[in-house]
């Protein structure tokens, strides 16, 4: 009852990064609410998976282990969660804003008639007064996210429906082990009681999942390009600079949408969140969704022809000028000064 609940994504027997981050955040929320942190792992051959989950401070782990449950498929995973939530009545449920969580979350929320907020950038506990209804609520989950093309930041609440559901992108929350020896309880679910044959109508014929080749999340230096780069060819300059500095190339959504670079490199609310030592933003105007994914960078350099670009307001250095002229100079003087 009234627990904070995290859906753990499992890929190749491993708990996904985003789920570990949510377990960390979930523990913070559960501690503040003085309730249990609970989690569910759904998949196949999950023996021992609790060893990777309890250290985040999980009190109860539900395990649904069945050969038919991996890889992920919408209907059986939904059926298990919906029935379990009816039984356990958590107050908060968190999922990754991943291919899986964004497929599963809405389906579960519809079945439970509970509110869901996608792609939250912050989750906070707080109160609310509904003056019209004369009601006062305590300990609601504030689901905070940019909205409307990033022109506003909205705080969303679900006053009356439970669980309060939210999805969060990988990298937005920090992952941190609470106690490597933390002991929770494993509850094995009798899968046949939760799913029916009709939940398996969607058949996966082929599946190719690649380990991400791009590791922008862990890169100490990121050279990132926006729509202002103008073309795919101009992006080559960014790869040159990233290579010289030992960094990775990132991009804004506008650059990804324009086809300058692959989606894996997208930084921001609907991409990856990064916290590098140095972030070089080239031809990026810096809408809030992009800033949400990089503003915690230790140092930010903004290279832009527009002196009014929003990115400049969070930059440590602003270089006004043409990227195609400035980047070769940065490479040149980096080489000169490191000799």
């Amino acid at each position: 009852m009234d627990s904070v609940f995290v859906y753990c994504e499992i890929e190749d027997g491993q708990v996904a990064e985003v789920s570990q981050e949510l377990l960390t955040k979930g523990k913070t929320l559960a501690t503040e609410l003085n309730c249990n942190l609970e989690a569910i792992a759904i998949g196949s051959q999950l023996d021992g998976i609790e060893k990777d989950i309890f250290p985040y401070g999980v009190d109860v782990l539900y395990v649904a282990d069945d050969a038919r449950l991996a890889p992920y498929s919408t209907l059986p995973h939904t059926a298990i969660i919906v029935k379990l939530f009816h039984e356990q009545k958590p107050q908060i449920a968190l999922m990754g804003a991943s291919s899986i969580g964004r497929d599963l979350g809405p389906r579960v929320s519809s079945a439970l008639h509970s509110g869901l907020t996608a792609d939250c950038t912050s989750l906070v506990i707080g109160g609310h007064e509904d003056k019209k209804q004369g009601k006062v609520y305590e300990n609601l989950l504030y689901q905070i996210r940019p909205a409307f093309g990033g022109n506003i930041i909205a705080t969303i609440i679900n006053p009356d429906c439970r669980p309060q559901m939210a999805t969060v992108r990988e990298g937005v929350m920090k992952k941190e082990i609470l106690d490597p020896k933390y002991k929770g309880k494993v509850v094995k679910l009798d899968v046949s009681k939760y799913v029916s044959d009709t939940d398996f109508v969607v058949e996966i014929i082929e599946r190719h999942i690649e380990k991400s080749k791009v590791n922008i999340k862990g890169a100490p230096i990121i050279v990132s390009g926006g729509y202002g780069m103008g073309s795919k060819e101009n992006f080559k300059l960014l790869y040159d600079l990233a290579e010289v500095l030992g960094g990775e190339v990132g991009a804004s959504r506008a650059a990804v949408d324009a086809g300058y670079v692959e989606h894996e490199r997208q930084i921001g609310q609907t991409g990856v969140t990064v916290r590098p030592k140095l972030y070089i933003a080239c031809g990026i105007s810096g809408q809030i969704q992009h800033r949400a994914g990089m503003e915690e960078s230790a140092q930010i350099i903004a290279i832009n022809t527009d002196p009014e670009a929003p990115i400049n307001s969070i930059a440590d250095y602003v270089i006004n000028g043409d990227v195609s002229e400035i980047i070769p100079k940065m490479i040149k003087y980096y080489k000169k000064n490191t000799k």
């Binding site: 929320s109 008639h113 869901l116 609310h128 990033g150 022109n151 506003i152 930041i153 969303i156 969070i314």
Partner: peptide, 13 residues
């Protein structure tokens, strides 16, 4: 609608 917008803030830099 279970979700309600509690507050909306203009983005101030």
């Amino acid at each position: 609608s279970p979700t309600k917008v509690k507050t909306v803030e203009n983005v101030v830099l």
